[in-house]
Nucleic acid binder design. Structure first.
Lengths: 212, 212
DNA sequence: CTTGGATTTCAGAAATTACTGAAAGTTCAG
DNA sequence: CTGAACTTTCAGTAATTTCTGAAATCCAAG
């Protein structure tokens, strides 16, 4: 069954985009098709619709499953497996973020940490390690934030996003009324860690010598 | 001049990572090398150090420049061009986010909008368009947020990130004391737009029919 | 068990992407 | 101008990735 022009255009564009993001075209197209489909589709129907070989679709679906972007279900009276995407679109964002973290970010942090444990053998090494530490701390900060924010329910998340940069007004409010900050969120130890050094990186550039 | 083990390991890992992110290995390695280098490097030195051809390095540098991830400078008494990465690590994040947006997200939003303008020719089209609208609104929300947040200075940004999910406590506070919300940030029109539909996506799944 | 539809695996073909060396282009001191 | 030093372009080649069809495997029904 041929695709309507609207759906075809979307599928093609999505496939194209995928290839800029380390996902191959086939996989992107399969996902796009499932995303707009009104019902779960069996692999052979996907293959026929998109003009790929059955085995290629099988591979693609396997990859999408490993990213938790599609789910498998059985329809009554049909022995074939049918695939669909989660209804909640935020689940896509969460799944992508989590898997990226697990597969790419965490191993990178491990490498960085390992390299920071090594004894430097030269001045160049020392400088390099300072840069690696900066990168490590930046990534860790971003990841902690994203892990944390992903626990919010959709409602809070949307409210937060819509607030955008205006959230700073809230921050200032909090800073001006320190009593409020101590309740549920309060940790009493002085909050001077790597992150403060990160923040200072543009203000003055030469105070980052506190890490070896 | 051969690389120290620490730097070499970093360069190799970074090159590997690049290939998961739509950046080729060579480009990743060049960037990594510049990132940890203590001084701007000329192209021929990069080529020799990494074992690539001179022309390959030239291509790679051109690409990195187009992403605004390296900058070119001339050193006194040397006719060659030297390359380095910005000192402020946040600038990397900003540059990456902006370029990705410009190159990939914006065109995608345009495609989505175009497809949403098309008259649906079937029930399947109608459903597909509803899904496209959801995706469009989600992306737009995320992009507006990121554009907005990137205008913050490093200090505010780090504070915000460190706050993580606890920012919700502040939101609730604001909601409970509406007087405070109206100052600088206030917009008086009722804030009911596409975003609210997005937020509701998990609570009830069938109220998103308000968009054609 | 056996059968047959459904799925996966895998070796090789096809397509894409990355890389090189030679040649052309640019810049600037003399 | 000239030519030396440096950079870019580009056509061809190498390497990698994607895709396919045939064969193997799986699995539920009989």
């Amino acid at each position: 069954m041929p695709l309507s022009p609207i759906i075809e255009a979307f599928v093609l564009h999505f496939g194209e985009m995928g290839s800029h993001w380390g996902i191959n075209r086939t996989v992107g197209q399969i996902y796009a098709l499932l995303y707009v489909s009104d019902r779960p589709l069996p692999a052979d129907e996907i293959a026929e619709t998109l003009g790929f070989s059955r085995s290629n679709v099988s591979m693609g679906l396997k990859e999408l499953q490993s990213w938790r972007l599609v789910r498998l279900q059985h329809l009554p009276g049909d022995r074939r497996e049918h695939f669909s995407t989660p209804d909640d679109i935020w689940q896509i964002v969460r799944a992508l973020a989590e898997e990226r973290r697990r597969r790419e970010i965490d191993p990178t942090l491990t490498v960085l940490r390992d390299l920071l444990m090594e004894a430097p053998r030269s001045e160049a090494d020392r400088l390099a390690q300072r840069r690696l530490a900066e990168m490590h701390d930046l990534i860790e900060l971003l990841m902690r934030w994203s892990e944390d924010v992903q626990k919010l329910d959709n409602k809070d998340l949307v409210q937060l996003l819509r607030l955008g940069g205006r959230v700073v007004a809230l921050l200032e409010l909090k800073n001006r009324l320190p009593l409020l900050g101590r309740g549920k969120a309060g940790r009493s130890r002085p909050e001077t860690t790597e992150a403060d050094a990160l923040a200072g990186a543009d203000a003055d550039d030469n105070n980052d010598t506190d890490r070896e």
